[in-house]
């Protein structure tokens, strides 16, 4: 039995194929201009790498941006909200998980789940780029760093520079000023990660934290943000044993499996 989950984010798109309760294959790509094109590209990539075709998939569930459009075009048979998919996927890879902190390219969600991976409560910010992956992207542009360098670079900082602005646009000007005045790049990078963690922390506290806590989404790959968040929340923030970016698509593939069993 093969099921697929497709998760279209604002910056990247993922597809996961689950075969009888285990992950068979997955793929992550940069998004295309439309959700539908992203869905096509990411599924074609994962299928061709694994010698599969669309016909081999028994059930496909879509989630993320344009999940309903993807279903309407016949790519998936069902669509499920990304909140539910992240909860489901995270609880599946780490059964003790009760809180999922998902920081994606254009939003941040804190999701509480029960022991079955069902949604208990959640909070989300998708109105302000502060506290989302976009904030880090904007900062990396100014710092002339690649997104995956921001975490490692920040670790060598001894005196993190506090970013006082909350707005990404104003923070951009602030960071530019620090660079112009000769401040250490590692110290600025550490300040950026702290600012990011601070926003996530504020959101998480509103909905409450229950152990175990896992962090998913692209920003989970930033070790600086993860360390800061652990310090602020006072709990261990676990990393999923799979790529943290595929949790939403994984959850979707698991919902597909459940549908087949009904």
């Amino acid at each position: 039995m093969l099921t697929a989950g497709i998760d279209i984010g604002s910056l990247s798109a993922q597809a996961v194929i689950v075969e009888s309760g285990s992950i068979k294959a997955y793929k992550s790509i940069r998004v295309k201009p439309s959700s539908l094109e992203s869905a096509k590209a990411v599924t074609e990539a994962v299928f061709s790498e694994n010698g599969l075709t669309f016909k081999d998939i028994d059930f496909c569930v879509s989630t993320g941006y344009g999940r309903d459009k993807i279903q309407a075009e016949g790519f998936s048979k069902m669509n499920v909200s990304e909140i539910s998919c992240h909860g489901r996927g995270a609880q599946w890879v780490l059964p003790d998980v009760r809180t999922v902190i998902d920081v994606g390219g254009q939003d941040c969600k804190v999701i509480r789940v029960n022991d079955k991976g069902e949604l208990a409560d959640f909070i989300m910010n998708d109105k302000c780029a502060g506290g989302t992956g976009r904030f880090l992207e904007v900062m990396c542009d100014v710092l002339d760093l690649k997104l995956d360098e921001l975490g490692p670079v920040s670790l060598s900082s001894r005196n993190p520079i506090k970013i006082t602005n909350r707005c990404s646009i104003y923070s951009e000007t602030e960071v530019l000023h620090y660079l112009q005045t000769g401040k250490n790049k590692a110290d600025i990078a550490a300040g950026v990660n702290m600012a990011m963690a601070e926003r996530v922390n504020a959101l998480a506290r509103q909905v409450g934290i229950e152990k175990e806590v896992v962090m998913t989404g692209g920003v989970a790959k930033n070790v600086g943000v993860k360390n800061e968040l652990e310090r602020m929340l006072g709990v261990t923030v676990r990393a999923p044993p799979v790529d943290p970016q595929i949790i939403g698509a994984l959850g979707a593939a698991l919902f597909a499996e459940e549908e087949l069993k009904k």
Partner: peptide, 18 residues
């Protein structure tokens, strides 16, 4: 639809692409 300047910039680019 975005009030955030960063997100609005993305919206602008999407409209250009469309």
């Amino acid at each position: 639809s975005s009030q955030c300047a960063v997100f609005a910039e993305s919206e602008v680019i999407t409209h250009v692409n469309e």
